[in-house]
């Protein structure tokens, strides 16, 4: 464990996804309180940190990688994190964000920003991250220690992963996790 604290430093991040996995994380409910004492949530959409810190023990990554910005974040996370968890189907498979892969990016943008626009049709092109032609899962860019599928993963499964990490044992996901 890292020197400043004996608590496990945990981060969560939300890339191309719907935040449903984070909702499911909160669904752990009362049991969260039980582990709260042994974890330190150092970076997350749920807390107010701007920069990804160093020396993170575990990072839960929700969402697929769809843009240059996503991949930059992934590399940063990988550098600063001991264990990366692909958190939910979008991170594991590309899932719903990946459904655009069977169309050309241009078609998708045209459809959403021009054809279906009701106000000022225009494809945004300034001050936004570069969108990839294809959405890909997290492990296409960085090494991932653990995969937690589900859309969203059941709170039970998330809790099992969390407690297993804290206890330093491999999680037992049998019957708890599946795609979809």
């Amino acid at each position: 464990m890292s020197p400043p604290t004996t608590k496990t430093r945990i981060a969560t991040i939300w890339l191309d996804g719907c935040s449903g996995c984070h909702m499911s994380l909160l669904d752990i409910d009362a049991r969260l309180a039980a582990v709260a004492g042994s974890i330190d949530l150092v970076f997350s959409p749920l807390v107010d940190t701007r920069t990804y810190p160093q020396n993170v023990d575990v990072c839960f990554i929700e969402g697929a990688a769809s843009s240059g910005e996503d991949v930059e974040k992934l590399h940063l996370i990988r550098r600063n994190t001991r264990q990366v968890v692909a958190f939910g189907d979008c991170a594991v498979t590309g899932n719903v964000p990946g459904m655009r892969n069977r169309f050309a990016l241009r078609e998708v943008l045209t459809r959403s920003y021009l054809e279906n626009a009701t106000h000022q049709p225009r494809i945004p092109d300034r001050d936004i991250p570069h969108l990839f032609e294809r959405v890909r899962p997290v492990h296409a860019f960085i090494d991932v220690e653990m995969f937690l599928p589900g859309c969203p993963p059941a709170a039970d499964a998330i809790f099992e992963v969390l407690s297993a990490l804290l206890e330093g044992r491999p999680p037992d996901l049998a019957g708890r996790a599946r795609f979809g």
Partner: peptide, 19 residues
Amino acid sequence: NHVCAVCVVNGNCELQDLA
């Protein structure tokens, strides 16, 4: 394109079970 999350047989699928 096996996207279980939006599939009509999500939860009743042999492929999903095999995984």
